[in-house]
Simulated scan of single mutants.
Amino acid sequence: MRPTDRLFEIIQILRGGPGPHRAADLAESLEVSVRTIYRDIAALQAMRVPILGEAGIGYVLRRGYDLPPVNFDIEEAEAISVGLAMLARTGDAGLQSAAVRAARKLSEATPLTDALMTTSWGVPDQALLSDIRAAIRDEQALATLYEGMDGSLTRRTILPIALIYYAEVTVLAAWCRLRGDFRHFRPDRIHECRPAGESFAGEGAPLRRKWEAARQADPAAGRLAGQRSNSTKTG
């Protein structure tokens, strides 16, 4: 989370709950250190955000302070609410945490009923997804150890370009240096994943266009990749 986003989120949390919020609780919610929270509170107070309290006791936001509202009509709000709830199916802890924050902001902006429900059936365990999404955004190659359908392990340097969230599985689309072609990988079969120290800045969008063209030319390959295979092609 960017520092500016974190400052905004601290304001939202202080607005949303009764009583003081301890720095330790804020740090746990935002996945940062308590020291970072102290710095952020000091920065907000320096910007004249009326936060009251102190270290060891907790912080509150003075009544009457508000941010510009987010305006949705009721059907837009319901559509967003259902979409956020369905992120639980992805198994992506980073997206789920972001969805909780977004849902809190949405509930403050627009009155919603609790008549719309989703289930978390089929949630995979994919802790790597936050790192993979960051690599896609930053256009950074990844060095991986990947398990194929036959159980064999191969070391691959890949250029990640897209994540496809199917109902039953998540698939990573990437350019595979080992195969010299696009491949679809199952994140739950990635045993090791680290930055390869190589940027492909500026190539992400062109690679996605080529990948989309290849997928449209062979739609069955994309469907199979989402269901069971480790790539759009065998081997």
Rank of each mutant, 00 (worst) to 15 (best):
A43M: 09
A43W: 00
Q45F: 01
Q45S: 09
Q45I: 00
M47T: 00
M47Q: 12
R48H: 13
V49H: 02
V49Q: 02
P50K: 13
P50Q: 13
I51F: 08
L52W: 06
L52Y: 04
G53K: 02
G53A: 02
E54L: 07
E54A: 11
A55N: 08
A55V: 15
A55P: 08
G56T: 01
G56K: 07
I57D: 04
Y59F: 15
Y59L: 04
Y59P: 00
V60L: 14
L61Q: 01
L61C: 03
L61F: 05
R62Q: 15
R62N: 03
R63K: 12
G64M: 04
D66K: 12
D66W: 08
L67A: 06
L67E: 14
P68D: 14
P69K: 06
P69F: 07
P69A: 08
V70I: 08
N71L: 08
N71R: 09
N71G: 04
F72M: 13
F72I: 05
F72N: 09
D73V: 03
D73N: 11
I74W: 05
I74M: 07
I74Q: 10
E76K: 02
E76F: 01
E76L: 01
E76P: 00
A77C: 06
A77L: 10
E78K: 12
E78Y: 08
E78T: 10
A79S: 15
A79G: 11
A79V: 10
I80Q: 06
S81C: 06
S81R: 13
S81L: 05
V82Y: 09
V82P: 00
G83T: 11
G83W: 07
G83A: 12
L84S: 06
L84T: 07
L84H: 11
L84G: 01
A85M: 15
A85H: 11
A85P: 00
A85D: 15
M86F: 04
M86N: 12
L87W: 12
A88P: 00
A88L: 03
A88T: 05
R89F: 02
R89S: 07
T90Y: 05
T90C: 04
G91M: 08
D92A: 10
D92Y: 10
A93S: 12
A93C: 03
G94L: 10
G94H: 07
G94Y: 07
G94D: 09
L95P: 01
L95Q: 12
Q96W: 15
Q96A: 15
S97N: 14
S97P: 00
S97V: 09
S97Y: 05
A98R: 15
A99P: 01
V100T: 13
V100R: 14
R101N: 12
R101Q: 13
R101T: 11
R101K: 10
A102N: 07
A102T: 14
A102V: 07
